[in-house]
Design a protein around this nucleic acid. Structure first.
Lengths: 76, 76
DNA sequence: GTGTGACTTCTAGTCCGTA
DNA sequence: ATACGGACTAGAAGTCACA
């Protein structure tokens, strides 16, 4: 029924894709944090949907996972 | 040669798509700002690539333009 | 290895001007 | 209608101690 568009908020999408892609690579939050040069707890809080992340950091996470920025914002 | 991925930084992509989609709708920066409930000068600075926008605001801009978040981050 | 609250520093985002 | 600057406030970035 043409649900406009918006399968999940940006935060939810990022959180989900992050978890999913990270798991697919068998990385711990800590390991991913290192790759992205971010803090362990920060990455955790993103996955818990608690943060309103800025583009620059989304970009770093994408780079760390070897995917495009858009991939981190794929609809649920 | 498999240029990993990254046709433009996230900022550049957003700036470009914003300008492009906004123009396609014949909206002024001001009008778009109103729709997205953001400030006039802020929208301008985003289009000039000067800002590291947060996801929530990317989302508001996407909603204002009636597109998905991913569309605002399409590769150049 | 991860969740959470509290905290400080820094910048995102607003609002005023002027061009 | 847009660019750009300065001054300001809200909120993101980033860290830590403890569960």
């Amino acid at each position: 029924m043409s649900r406009r568009q918006s399968r999940g908020t940006a935060r939810e999408r990022l959180a989900h894709q992050l978890r999913s892609l990270r798991a697919a690579r068998s990385l711990s939050q800590e390991a991913l944090a290192d790759l992205a040069e971010l803090h362990r707890t920060y990455v955790g809080s993103i996955e818990r949907c608690e943060r309103n992340v800025s583009l620059d950091n989304v970009e770093r996470l994408a780079a760390a996972l070897g995917v495009d920025i858009q991939d981190l914002l794929s609809p649920l």
